[in-house]
């Protein structure tokens, strides 16, 4: 039976449709839910194995990306999400969804990391561009191998930063920085534009200690179809988009 995926929508969410398509293509059966419904009925989560907070500008992102969404999720829902994770549910936050999970304290999770944020890009502006990424380790079921992938980023606030710089290193040692921006030689990099926002430790995606909560700034749902790649007319399209693998891995681990 195909796993049931919930894609959670809030005012300003704008990547929900393509996220639904990605989950469907990966073999999940998908439902979109508005945050209002979930707040009214947190038990709704019981019917799903995976929850995605997709990209967008939730509530306008006026007060810092993801902040209002995270605050609406509130303590009550954070607890429900914690239980969801603890019973084996997978939580995915993409771009704004990653920002929401960080603001809500679900990523990187625990208290040892101290204050964590996704700060303004060092370039000082919103940027849309393709980046190369390398999955590291296999702490999260969303990433199954260390084959480099290419995905687009599109954000103004994506610089992963901890209040205490050593906390980022500790997360890295714990294997929680599971996706890194890499250069042409596949080495993690802090060089712009390969690292598009100046993230410390080249962090592009982070998971919690269980690996079941995963957030990333790049958009895997935008590289599902081979023709999404920016250079397919040069190299010929591959079989399918790199982003689809992330959804497939999750479905596989849940099936």
């Amino acid at each position: 039976m195909s796993p049931r995926a919930l894609v959670l929508r809030a005012p300003g969410t704008n990547c929900d449709e393509e996220t639904v398509v990605a989950w469907e293509r990966a073999g999940a059966s998908v439902q979109v839910g508005h945050i209002g419904r979930l707040l009214a009925d947190p038990k709704m989560l019981d019917g799903f194995q995976t929850l995605t907070i997709p990209g967008g500008f939730s509530y306008g992102d006026d007060l810092g990306a993801g902040r209002i969404f995270a605050s609406r999720l509130g303590t009550a829902l954070s607890d429900a999400l914690g239980r969801f994770r603890d019973r084996g549910g997978l939580v995915l936050g993409i771009c704004n969804g990653f920002q929401v999970l960080v603001r809500a304290g679900l990523l990187p999770g625990g208290t040892h990391a101290g204050a964590v944020t996704l700060a303004r890009n060092l370039s000082g502006k919103f940027e849309a561009r393709w980046v190369k990424l390398r999955p590291l380790g296999s702490k999260t079921p969303f990433l199954a191998d260390d084959e480099p992938i290419e995905l687009p980023v599109a954000h103004g606030e994506g610089r992963f930063l901890t209040g205490d710089p050593s906390a980022t290193e500790a997360l890295d040692r714990a294997g929680q920085i599971v996706l890194k921006y890499v250069d042409d030689q596949n080495h993690p990099t802090s060089e712009y534009p390969s690292n598009p926002n100046g993230s410390s430790m080249a962090a592009a995606g982070v998971c919690d200690a269980t690996g079941r909560v995963f957030g990333l700034m790049p958009h895997p749902e935008r590289f599902v179809d081979p023709f999404h790649h920016p250079r397919w007319t040069r190299r010929g399209p591959r079989a399918e988009g790199d982003g689809l693998r992330i959804f497939r891995n999750a479905v596989k681990s849940l099936s």
Binding site: N14, V21, F126, E127, A128, P152, A154, H219
Partner: peptide, 13 residues
Amino acid sequence: IRQYDHEVQGRTV
């Protein structure tokens, strides 16, 4: 161009 999200909705081929 790079300040605009030209790929949201996943339609831009």
